[in-house]
Structure formats: structure tokens, C-alpha cells
């Protein structure tokens, strides 16, 4: 069963076409790494999945529900697809623990005690058990991003979307976020990751997608593609990222 199904999806911002009739099926358990030059549409593709961007044409199903099915269905989709942002976007007025407990309380109707216990466990899972009472401004970028991952996991999604999760981090802080993502993948979480981390793509990814100009131009096994990129533009792109 496909967790995500793009059917000839098009998306434009004004006159600029960002996605051109994209077809894409993603199955449960896949770790899809999306790469491509800036402006190729990879972030937009990701943001269409949880309807932060609305598609203009075609259809897009998440866990069998169309993103065009209306507001309440979109909220269901968003609860099935957790998202991690480049800029973390933690709620600054809440502590790390409150950030993680917030989703379950508001959308899953969990009690405060229940949500807090779960949040504490999730913070421990991302290695921040002792940081629960810190505000985001008191945490490093890597720590903030790990809290953000815990926050997204708290609503028990079936699918995780990562939008350049390490791009805003200093190199020495990236590995702690990547490690959390890797353990998540090893647990069998379905993941779609927009990133420039080729080592992660090779080690953790089960599928690599190269986007150019609103289209998927290469789709295949990361190890094969990265060691022997036949597509000339992918080869050129990889030379620039490495």
C-alpha cells in the first residue's frame, strides 16, 4: 500500500511552475532522499504532502486521503505526516517538554499527565532527557532540531517529512540530528528527506530521487546512483555538493 501517491501533480507560484505533472509512489518503510539544485521543486514537493502548499493540478493521496478532500481531512493527513523544518520552528514560549507535549494534547486529546510522560520518553529517545525544562532559546541548534523531531513524533505519525533538517546547523552539530534520523529509519519509519547530506543518503536512504526543474529526473537506489551516476546532470550536481 502506498503511503504517498502523487498523480500528475502540478504546482505553480504565480507564473513560475514548480512541479510539472509529478508521478511518485512511496511505500511504507521507504527512506526517500530528495536531492536537486535549489529551485528544482524538492521542498515544494515535500510541502504539498502535508498541504502546507496546495496543489494546482492532479491529485495527491496520503495514506489514501486526498489533500483536496477538505479542511478536516487535511488535518488528518497532517497528523499522519510529521514535519521537521529547516529552521526548527519550535514554539518559543514553551519549554522543550511543552513543545513535545503540545501536539498530543491539542490534536490527540491526551491528558496533561499522559502527554508529559510521552514527551519525556521522546526527549530521552532524541538524547535530551535532561533538557525538558529549557526554552528553545537556551538550546543549541542541534538540540532544537532534535526537540523538533520529538515534537513531530509525538503525534504518532505514519510518515515523517524532513525539509533540509541540517542545513541551518553548524557542521559539528549535524551528526547528532542525523544520528536520530538514522535510528528512526532503522525502526522502520517511512521518511522523505530533502537534504544535501550525501553520506546520509548513501547510508540510510533506501531510495534516491533527483529533481530538476519541477520533474523527477532520476529515481533509484542511492548506493548505485551515487557510486555511478549515469545521468550527466546528476553527476554534475554531485560534484558540486561533495
Amino acid at each position: 500500500m502506498n503511503v504517498v501517491e502523487f498523480r500528475k501533480v502540478t504546482k505553480a507560484f504565480g507564473r513560475i511552475v514548480v512541479l510539472r505533472e509529478v508521478d511518485l509512489n512511496i511505500e511504507a518503510g521507504e527512506v526517500v532522499v530528495l536531492i536537486g539544485p535549489s529551485g528544482s521543486g524538492k521542498s515544494t514537493l515535500l510541502r504539498c504532502i502535508n498541504a502546507l502548499e496546495q496543489i494546482d493540478g492532479g491529485d495527491l493521496l496520503v495514506d489514501g486521503i486526498s489533500v483536496k478532500a477538505g479542511r478536516s481531512q487535511v488535518r488528518v493527513i497532517r497528523q499522519e505526516a510529521g514535519m521537521v523544518f529547516q529552521q526548527f520552528n519550535l514554539f518559543p514560549q514553551m519549554t522543550a517538554l511543552e513543545n513535545v507535549a503540545f501536539g498530543p494534547r491539542q490534536v490527540r486529546g491526551a491528558s496533561k499527565a499522559e502527554a508529559t510522560t510521552q514527551a519525556q520518553a521522546l526527549l530521552a529517545k532524541v538524547g535530551l532527557a535532561d533538557r525538558g525544562h529549557h526554552y528553545p532559546s537556551e538550546l543549541s541548534g542541534g538540540q532544537q532540531q532534535r526537540v523538533a523531531i520529538a515534537r513531530a513524533l509525538a503525534i504518532k505519525p505514519k510518515l515523517m517529512l524532513f525539509d533540509e533538517p541540517t542545513s541551518a546547523l553548524d557542521p559539528e552539530l549535524r551528526h547528532e540530528v542525523l544520528r536520530v534520523m538514522q535510528s528512526l529509519a532503522e525502526e522502520g519509519m517511512t521518511m522523505i528527506v530533502v537534504t544535501h547530506e550525501m553520506a546520509f543518503a548513501r547510508k540510510v536512504g533506501t531510495r534516491l530521487i533527483f529533481m530538476e526543474d519541477g520533474r523527477i529526473s532520476v529515481d533509484g537506489n542511492p548506493t548505485t546512483l551515487l557510486s555511478n551516476p549515469e545521468n550527466p546532470r546528476l553527476r554534475e550536481f554531485l560534484q558540486h555538493v561533495h
Binding site: 502546507l52 479542511r71 497528523q79 523544518f85 529552521q87 520552528n89 514554539f91 491539542q106 490534536v107 513531530a152
Partner: peptide, 17 residues
């Protein structure tokens, strides 16, 4: 910052919340 709105919406919250 509009990222906060998106983070809230991405959790599945209705806009008023």
C-alpha cells in the same frame, strides 16, 4: 515568523488553535 504558523498547522491543529 510564519514558520511557527506552519509548525502549528503541520501538527494538524485547526487555524484558530
Amino acid at each position: 515568523h510564519k514558520g511557527l504558523k506552519e509548525a502549528g498547522l503541520a501538527l494538524g491543529l485547526p487555524m484558530w488553535k
